[in-house]
Simulated assay, not measured.
Amino acid sequence: MNFDLAIDRNRTSCEKWDNRQAVFGNPDALPMWVADMDFAAPPAVIKALHERVEHGVFGYTFPPVSYKESIVDWMQTRHNWSIQPEWIQNCPGVVPALSLLVEAFTSPGDQVMIQTPVYPPFYQVVKEHGRELITNPLIQNEDGSYVMDFDHLEQNLSGGQVKMLILCSPHNPVGRVWTREELSRLAELCIRYDVLVVSDEIHSDLVFEPSKHVPYAALSEEAALNSIICTAPSKTFNIAGLNTANMIIPNEQHRSKFRKALKRYALGSITPLGAAATEAAYREGGEWLDTLLDYIRGNMELVHRYASEHLPEVKLSLPESTYLLWLDFRKLGMDSDELNRFLVHEAKLGLNKGSTFGDEGEGFMRMNVACTRATVQEALSRLHNALEAWRARK
């Protein structure tokens, strides 16, 4: 796979590229925001889609036995996690699943905890269902890395009002891969205080060595029975547009409750193309993924090295997972809107505003480097020139 090959995504109704004027107010902004990749899906996926399209009939579809078996095999091979096919429930996406889970497993007025700064829909799925949002902000170390604040966590859980914790594992946007020790401590607290853990593990395949993703439900039988694991092939293989996700639910009662929620909204079906792509990805996409991770890591190291040498106003630590960089621009002394205007109109870059991830993201921006190295180099050049002009005005 040639990840240096630039694929023109313009005029394909692509949210990242075709929506630049609407999102940023500048059609010339280089888009490095929404979390999909500019790379083609694995050849095995494209081949499977061609074969399915050639059949010509795209009627109602259910997940075949082989579909679930491919997920079982992938989890065993990539994550050393043994799961049962009956634990798997498909859903159109992880975010719709989070919304359904909040509605099904909590009541209006219940408290739901998230660990901030975090993916913006975590806020929405709690607030829009009339639940009380409780935040447990992560602690940032001097080197820019983040850890969980267990003291604050237990203080909130011990009140007995928190009914669910939505875990981001690996964490978006800070890129942490939680260790077994961290997750075990979290599990001990959530089991003690009877808090259901919904673990969004959509980035679990995008982990860089020597870090190792530990599925939350693989910690222990108690943790498995007190958790729902959200997975999808979408980030891993760049097939988000096929709307296929899989909830892994070891607890039979939890499975039943989630399936009833899906039925209420008629969301339990799967598309024929989504099914074909997912199975092909999990069956034959491992080698492609390994090559992809090497390439993305190279992009990240390029940004880190360049910032260290040429961009003293920009700080970042290399993430352990995802293809997203969490850039610290606080040295510029700009508020969120000022920083966004500077980057969009002077650097001509379209990034995610850190403030949308929570108050802790003020002064930060999220950059997606799942793109060609030439695109990353162009972004760094634009940022360098804009910062030189900013320094000249100081």
Rank of each mutant, 00 (worst) to 15 (best):
108 P>N: 11
263 K>V: 07
392 A>S: 11
36 D>K: 13
378 E>Q: 11
74 W>G: 00
151 D>R: 09
292 L>S: 08
34 V>M: 12
338 E>L: 05
48 A>H: 02
101 L>E: 08
245 A>E: 04
391 R>V: 05
101 L>F: 03
344 V>S: 01
59 G>M: 10
129 H>F: 09
316 L>N: 00
280 A>Q: 02
239 I>H: 02
226 N>Y: 04
233 P>V: 05
8 D>P: 05
293 L>R: 14
318 L>S: 10
3 F>R: 07
355 S>C: 12
37 M>W: 11
227 S>W: 04
105 F>L: 10
68 K>Y: 14
271 T>I: 03
75 M>R: 02
325 L>C: 09
286 G>W: 06
374 A>F: 04
47 K>M: 09
256 S>A: 15
363 G>C: 08
214 V>N: 03
346 E>F: 01
27 P>L: 11
339 L>T: 01
372 T>C: 03
107 S>Q: 15
1 M>E: 12
295 Y>K: 11
214 V>Y: 02
383 L>R: 00
199 S>P: 06
174 V>L: 06
318 L>R: 03
107 S>C: 14
263 K>Y: 13
339 L>V: 00
225 L>Q: 13
350 G>Q: 03
97 A>L: 09
122 F>S: 04
121 P>N: 13
366 R>A: 12
149 D>P: 10
84 Q>N: 13
370 A>G: 14
358 G>K: 04
290 D>E: 15
360 E>N: 07
132 E>I: 12
17 W>Y: 13
